[in-house]
């Protein structure tokens, strides 16, 4: 049977891949942001596992920072989405193409 570490790692991989997929394919900005949160969770999982394996607080501290950053990012992104929604009336990503090359 696979060891815990490998199970956790595979869960993390799935989380990350699904997060990436949602971010790529979803047309709504909020859901795309959720994709990002998923990815970050995948990363957190691996970090925690590493922390446990190497028996020091490195993993945990990184997780804390990642979580913190995710929180800050989510807060700001969502408030931006609110403003975008007010301005564009919709949150589908296709409409935000003004930064075209």
């Amino acid at each position: 049977m696979i060891a815990t570490g490998q199970l956790i790692f595979s869960v993390a991989i799935f989380l990350f891949c699904f997060g990436a997929l949602t971010f790529f394919t979803k047309r709504s900005a909020v859901v795309a942001l959720m994709g990002i949160e998923l990815m970050l969770n995948g990363v957190n999982l691996v970090l925690v596992q590493a922390g446990q394996i190497y028996k020091n607080a490195e993993g945990t501290s990184l997780v804390l920072f990642v979580t913190l950053v995710a929180a800050a990012e989510a807060a700001l992104a969502l408030s931006i989405f609110v403003i975008l929604y007010r301005k564009y009336g919709t949150l589908t990503l296709e409409n935000f193409r003004s930064l075209k090359g």
Partner: peptide, 16 residues
């Protein structure tokens, strides 16, 4: 752990 990881993957799939 098995249950929790199953749920994690399942919910992630739903999000996608």
């Amino acid at each position: 752990m098995w249950v929790a990881s199953f749920f994690a993957i399942f919910f992630a799939l739903i999000v996608f």
